[in-house]
Nucleic acid binder design. Structure first.
Length: 272
DNA sequence: AAGCCAACCTGGACGC
DNA sequence: TGCGTCCAGGTTGGCT
């Protein structure tokens, strides 16, 4: 579900309603996610004030007074705000009750997500955070691409590699490559270095526009922000999920091709 | 040692 | 209606 624009949308919708509030209660299921939920970790948060919520790549970090919580939404994770007596969505694994009768809920049907609590120092040393590359909203995308210019992998795989750029997923990698006129499965090293600045610009542009639209919701049950609202960017997708349809740029038929276990979408005429 | 690929899960869409 | 198959927005560990 969530790539950078969706995670950032969640962050922005949580902050105004949660920051400055204190944790009043914790309800946590000891369930195995990518990193399992350990209820006793979460109980430590009771009484602590939420100071900030940060994002790096697709991770959210909620900073409390003496502990930090790391969230990853995997493919199907949702973080929503609710009243304590509201009906519980299926696969809700964690509920943080805040003062003011507001509850943060984490649900994740496919269980590829993560939700852990650590001391700030320990969390900073966490494996998955250490390995992260440049955040495309704040870092130098062009430099990150140039540093990977000699890779023998398909260029889409490079864009999906969180050690290079932290935040792109399959939707926006395909969309950025369409905007830049580059085929997703083409070897990175065969793409001329002169084309990389345009690709960097396309990446920043598509992420920024998706964020302005509140992210991409592909179908019912997909991504929602903290209030349960859908993202509006799906109508602006040029290639993702549009195989068989005409390219808006040139009219050629958009192709879907399976590679590295995931669908690549591209226009065979405007992408080379 | 870089680069594939299966594995981890559940659910929805589709075909018969 | 029901059952089987395929596919899904991500990451990682193990293999070559």
């Amino acid at each position: 579900m969530p790539e950078l624009p969706e995670v950032e949308t969640v962050r922005r919708s949580l902050i105004p309603r949660l920051v400055g509030r204190r944790v009043a209660s914790v309800w946590a299921r000891p369930i195995k996610l990518r990193e399992g939920i350990v209820p006793s970790e979460w109980q430590r948060l009771v009484g602590m004030e939420l100071l900030t919520i940060e994002r790096t790549g697709k991770f959210l970090i909620a900073r409390f007074e003496r502990a930090s919580a790391l969230f990853h939404l995997g493919m199907s994770g949702r973080m929503t705000l609710a009243q304590p007596d509201n009906e519980l969505a299926p696969h809700t694994h964690l509920r943080l009750g805040f003062d003011g009768d507001l509850e943060l809920r984490f649900a994740d049907p496919r269980r590829f997500g993560a939700a852990i609590v650590r001391s700030p120092a320990t969390l900073a040393r966490h494996r998955s955070l250490q390995a992260l590359g440049v955040d495309p909203l704040t870092g130098d995308v062009e430099a990150a691409l140039l540093a990977s210019a000699r890779s023998r992998s398909p260029i889409r795989s490079v864009l999906l590699d969180q050690r290079v750029l932290a935040g792109l997923g399959n939707i926006y990698a395909n969309e950025a490559l369409h905007r830049a006129g580059i085929r997703p499965l083409r070897q990175m090293r065969t793409v001329g270095r002169v084309r990389l600045p345009a690709l960097a610009a396309a990446i920043r542009q598509v992420l920024t526009q998706a964020l302005e639209a509140g992210g991409t919701t592909l179908r019912d049950g997909g991504f929602v922000d903290a209030s349960g609202k859908d993202g509006a960017f799906a109508v602006q997708l040029a290639v993702y999920g549009r195989d068989g349809q005409a390219c808006e740029e040139c009219g050629a038929t958009i192709v879907r091709q399976m590679a590295t276990g995931r669908s690549a979408y591209f226009c065979p005429r405007c992408q080379r």
